[in-house]
Simulated scan of single mutants.
Amino acid sequence: MNPNYKPIFYHELIDESEKGFAFRQRYWLRSYLGYPPVRDARPNTTHFALAALQHTSHISRLVTQNVDGLHAKAIAHLWGGTHIRKNILELHGTLHRVRCKYGHLTSRDTFQEWLSDCNPQWKEYMDGFERAGNQPRTNPDGDVELEGVSYDDFDVPDCPQCFLEDRRNSIHKPEVIFFGESIPAAIKDRSFRDVEKSDRLFVLGTTLATFSAYRLIKRALELRKPVLLLNVGPTRADGLPGIEKIEIASGLIIRDVVRAILGSKAVTDPVVADLLESGVLRPPIDDKERTLADSSRTMRLSKDGFRYRS
């Protein structure tokens, strides 16, 4: 949507030079402010409809490119963590965990606390948004749009585990696959196995722009498995022999489709009925509404930190 958006690449984020440190300041400040909306987001009606098909074993495996954890959140009250990890593959990782350069893993909530402790002025700034019931514009990867802001004073904390091992290290990365980073071999292999074990492939809400997803479609077609693509707008797989495509927003039809598949069980099974009545159903805020929301709050930088007013 934003042709001028410039993501931080993997090699930039882990660069040990002064330039890499500046990239991490930029990334973690924007991500620090953008994570709360991702953390607090609720699954929509499509997430819960798919959860109903998972609960009834009509969907045996779910592979998602999303890093927000909403597919897991939609079914977490029915499945334990082990079962979720077995049946839902996060192809591009998750924003909810952070790993340091030497492999030490921590929850994102804990890492947010470290960032708050190191940057009280930015904690105050973020609290101001929350008190006003407002949030800066957040992208799906948890990054926020900030203009005219210096990142020089943002402090990225050292890893406590590294400190116990007599080293200092402030190179951290969310467990998300960045541009220029390869998907781990184990994840790649599992994604192919999930396709190979399935009878058919239902592809929902993706342009298939990333090769990691597109190659799964290619693999399914090689194995002569039926592939149905539900997406609004063009995709990388358009025109491939063997692809059936429906251009309609999933939220408009998916619950009715699930009811048709499940028949009377959609009404008589209380768990399924609850899933099909759950979920946020709200269209995305448009650019005009965003502009009005953004203009309702202004930010200015004084010599002792940020001040904000409604």
Rank of each mutant, 00 (worst) to 15 (best):
G305A: 11
P140M: 13
I177Y: 09
I14D: 11
R61E: 08
E16M: 15
R167W: 06
L62C: 00
D127H: 10
P283E: 13
D256V: 09
K303R: 12
L223Y: 06
Q112G: 02
R39N: 02
A49W: 05
D152L: 13
D256E: 15
A132S: 12
G20H: 05
L292G: 03
V195K: 14
V98K: 05
P184K: 04
V144K: 04
G263D: 08
Q25Y: 05
A72R: 02
T45E: 06
L208F: 12
S250V: 11
W122T: 06
Q135C: 11
V63W: 14
P283A: 10
S107T: 10
I187K: 07
F306Y: 04
K101I: 07
S278D: 05
K86L: 02
K73P: 03
S170F: 15
P174I: 13
T268E: 15
I187Q: 02
R224D: 04
A237Q: 06
A220Q: 01
Q25W: 05
F202L: 15
K19A: 04
L301F: 03
T235V: 06
T210P: 12
G69E: 08
Y308L: 15
Y5A: 01
T110W: 09
S57K: 11
L70Y: 13
L275S: 00
R137V: 13
F9K: 00
V271G: 00
Q135P: 03
R297S: 13
C162K: 05
R168H: 10
Y151M: 04
E289G: 03
G239Y: 07
K265N: 15
V267G: 10
R85Q: 15
L62W: 08
A266S: 09
C159K: 03
I285R: 07
P43H: 11
H83Y: 07
L146F: 03
K265E: 13
V227S: 01
K245R: 12
K188G: 00
F211R: 13
D40K: 08
C162V: 01
E113P: 11
E244I: 07
G142K: 04
A76K: 15
D294V: 01
Y308W: 14
I246R: 07
L50M: 10
R297W: 15
L62E: 07
S295K: 01
N2Q: 01
D141E: 03
N119W: 06
Y102K: 07
S57C: 12
I285V: 10
S250I: 07
K225P: 01
I243K: 05
R300M: 08
Q161T: 13
D127R: 14
E222C: 06
L240I: 05
R99P: 00
I246K: 01
T82L: 08
S150D: 11
D286K: 09
F154Q: 03
L252G: 06
L91R: 03
A72N: 00
G305S: 01
M126H: 05
V38W: 08
A186C: 09
L281K: 10
Q121E: 13
T82N: 13
L262D: 07
I217F: 06
L223W: 09
F192N: 01
L262W: 08
R167C: 06
I246T: 02
A273W: 03
R307N: 01
F23R: 12
W122H: 12
L204M: 14
K123G: 00
L262N: 00
G233Q: 04
D152S: 12
E277Y: 07
I248D: 11
V203D: 05
P36I: 07
Y308H: 14
N119V: 10
F154P: 14
F178N: 06
A22N: 08
S302A: 09
G205Y: 04
R307M: 02
Y125A: 11
D143C: 10
